[in-house]
Simulated scan of single mutants.
Amino acid sequence: MTTWRGAVRRVEPHLPVLLALTVAAATWASATGGLGVRAPLPGVVVLLVALATGAAVLASRPWVLPAVAAASWLLLAAWAPVVVASWRAGVGLRGRPLAAYLLGTVPVMLASVAVGGAMGGERRLVVATPGNAVLFYAWLVIAPAVAGLWIGARRDALAALRDRADRLEREQEAQAERVRVEERARIAREMHDVVAHRVSLMVVHAGALEVTTADPATVEAAALIRSTGRAALTDLREVLGVLRQGPPLPSPGWDAVDDLVRESRATGLRVSRADEGTPGPVPGAVARTVHRVVQEGLTNVRKHAPDAAVDVRLRHLADRIEVAVRNDPSDRPGPVLPGAGLGLVGLRERVELTGGRLTAGPTPAGGFLLCALVPVGEPT
């Protein structure tokens, strides 16, 4: 079936030329007696009329083929151009134009009867007798026109179905987009009502503690909590803006990785940062993924090994970026922090969406290594 459809698609652009050659050959065969009545005209005239019928099939003006078909029927009793002209009329014409074509064929057929009667012989027997004249009119005019009407109606029905399917698809896409927008707005409202409210309270209480306490260590810790909470509110507002409006997230660059390192050092982590290679321009999705890997690695260290030394290393290669967060063994567990335990799962999915690879696991020395290879180009 596939091979057949492919052959049809290859032949389809050449169908008008093939039809024109077929009509010209059939006209010649009809006028020479092979497929019809032999014409008494010279062979050169017959050849010119046959070529004219083939050219009329390719003509751009719709009236050319009916005119040439009428002339060839009166001169040569050639049936092929009449059949094609009637078929095209049925396919392309409706209402008054089609009625005008059918009425116009009546005097042509009557004139053909008169010509056949005047010529006598075989021409008179074939086209001039009343029974044959009626049969020829039905076969040459009515039947092709009816077939053309059926094909045209089927084509119009298929076009209407395609238009309806396209319209329904557009409506479904618009409906799906409306649902996505409403869902983003709902999630944004819930996040704002729950998360933003609690983080705001945390910032307010941390600010109050910073002002009222006299202990320098407590003041420093309260200031850190307040600044971290305000940064979290800023990030949350960006996420809520994306959920409400749908613009792309801002693309954090390499400076954002430095910010993560500085924030982690401010919390007491012993973090070192090293780069290998020359940083170059990368797509926003790649920069966000690298940022997210470093963020997840440092978050896990704060949770599980807050006293361990951490090494953040970025290797800028020709076609990819290798980012690694490695920490040494820890002598004491970190504070109990809430979490779903799905951070690495989501991070692995995010890295794999870029065409990269993520590995995470303990090191031989007893520490932990989070490593990701992120392609710089688009995923294949």
Rank of each mutant, 00 (worst) to 15 (best):
G339S: 14
E12W: 15
L358Y: 10
G54A: 08
V257W: 06
H197V: 09
S330P: 10
D311I: 04
L158Q: 14
R61E: 06
G121Y: 12
P283N: 03
G246K: 01
L103I: 03
G90I: 00
D255C: 02
R94G: 04
A143V: 08
L135V: 04
P306A: 02
L41M: 13
L98E: 07
P16K: 08
V203Q: 02
D319N: 08
V37I: 12
R186D: 12
P283A: 12
G241H: 14
T299M: 09
H197R: 15
W4F: 08
A24L: 12
E182T: 10
C371A: 11
P250C: 13
L58V: 00
V91H: 13
G339M: 11
R292Y: 03
L161S: 14
W28T: 00
D311N: 06
L243I: 01
R198N: 15
A340Y: 08
R348K: 13
D193W: 08
V294H: 06
E122C: 03
P362I: 00
V179F: 09
A114K: 06
E296Y: 02
V211K: 05
S30E: 09
V261F: 06
T228G: 13
R265F: 01
A232V: 01
V46G: 01
S30I: 05
P42F: 00
D163I: 00
L233Y: 09
H192Q: 15
V257R: 08
L358P: 11
G277P: 13
R96Q: 14
W73H: 14
A56S: 06
H14F: 06
A196S: 15
V376I: 12
R313P: 00
L98N: 09
L201R: 14
S200N: 11
R10H: 14
G366A: 03
R348H: 12
R123V: 00
A221W: 10
G253L: 12
V141N: 11
Y137N: 07
R237H: 13
R9C: 01
P279C: 03
T2Y: 09
A165M: 09
L158K: 10
V84R: 02
G152K: 11
P107S: 02
V325L: 12
S251W: 01
A305Y: 04
I142D: 11
G34N: 07
V271A: 10
A206Y: 02
T267M: 11
V310L: 07
G339Y: 14
A206T: 11
G277K: 02
R326K: 05
S227G: 04
R288G: 14
V115I: 05
R94D: 10
V374S: 03
A39Q: 03
A196K: 12
L224E: 10
R326S: 02
L41R: 07
L135M: 07
L110Y: 08
A365Y: 01
R189F: 11
R265Y: 02
L110E: 12
G207W: 01
R186E: 11
G341S: 07
A309K: 07
V194T: 10
A308K: 03
Q172N: 11
Y137L: 10
L18N: 00
E177N: 05
V23Q: 01
W254K: 12
V261G: 09
T53I: 06
V141P: 00
L48Y: 04
P97N: 07
D259I: 03
P42S: 04
A174N: 14
V211G: 09
G95C: 00
H291N: 15
P42W: 03
P375S: 05
V113E: 10
L75M: 10
V106A: 14
G246Q: 07
P375R: 05
Y101C: 05
